[in-house]
Amino acid sequence: MTTVSEPATIEVLASGTAPYHKIDPDGFREWVRDNKQRALVPKLMTEKEAVQKFVADGDYITYECNYLTRGPNSLLHEIMRQQKKNLWIAGKFTYVDVGMLVGAGCAGKVDTGFFLCTPSVRQALDAGKLEVYEYSNVIMTMRLEAGAQGIPFIPVRSFGGTDGFNHSGAKLITDPYTGQPTVIIPALNPDVAIIHVQQADKFGNARIFGTGISDVPAALASRKVIVSAEEIIDTEEIRSNPGLTKIPYWCVDAVVEAPFAGYPGTVPGYYASDPAVVMEVFASVLRGAVEPYLEKWVFGVNSHQEMLEKNVGVAKLLDMRKRETIRGGLRA
């Protein structure tokens, strides 16, 4: 055995100044011990019940993908309908979602990422009702990765030298192994994750087809996990091809059967987007007219199903399904 001489100490060379969601790996383990069901317990419930039960005012929330692509839109809409307050939002890889949540009065803080900085967001910033902390998309998903591993931080090779670093929870340290300056970022363990998947069984074993952003780390890292699924499938089907299970049941606290939950966006393999309404939400959010959009699509209805019945209709849904011609790898 040869020994290598190593720098003995870790020196903190620079620190960002932003607050970050509490890091508590042991507390997370205890939460898992005390709250996550190891038994196979059915968790099917409505979107209303799931949000009432598992989203609280002030929670740190992450959603997977975004409003346009496999977005958990039925759950996002329900959170707005229930007027959850002061949420801290993981605003990674987002176009309109943050602007909608801010417009609906639900958001207090945002870690970003990327989001369209819309008039509603600017108004909230100017009024001191919203705080934004700076990260980037990959830095946010790597924070979730650290949270998903149960560790307090993770080194990364990007983010150093930026002003985002200065307005974040990152630090620059001397790596005790190489002696090189290395950026570390705080683990992220959200209070709640909402994730839309193509298929899940009633216990929460979930299949996701196609590419993604950070579905699996988000499910592992979050204290409360709500999964909505295009289809609820039998557990026998899960057992027939276990390699397709991306999220195991024990991470999941609620399962919501939610066909067309990604409307007006696409769910790969199931339906294409509704381009007219995609442009409607962009125009509304970007032009400072988010309220009429929310009134029509969120507050004016009691559930996602009612929205589909009242505002969309079967003909359009069938057309969206017909236009999604690619199935390879996107269907079991």
């Binding site: 998309n137 590419t211 952003i213 950070s214 699996v216 995609v278 390879g328």
Partner: peptide, 22 residues
């Protein structure tokens, strides 16, 4: 389709591998 250049089926069609942001 408009705004559908990532994550959508047409955008990731016939890839060699799918992945995630990480």
């Amino acid at each position: 389709e408009p705004m559908m250049t990532m994550l959508a089926a047409r955008a990731s069609y016939r890839a060699l591998a799918w992945g995630t942001m990480n």
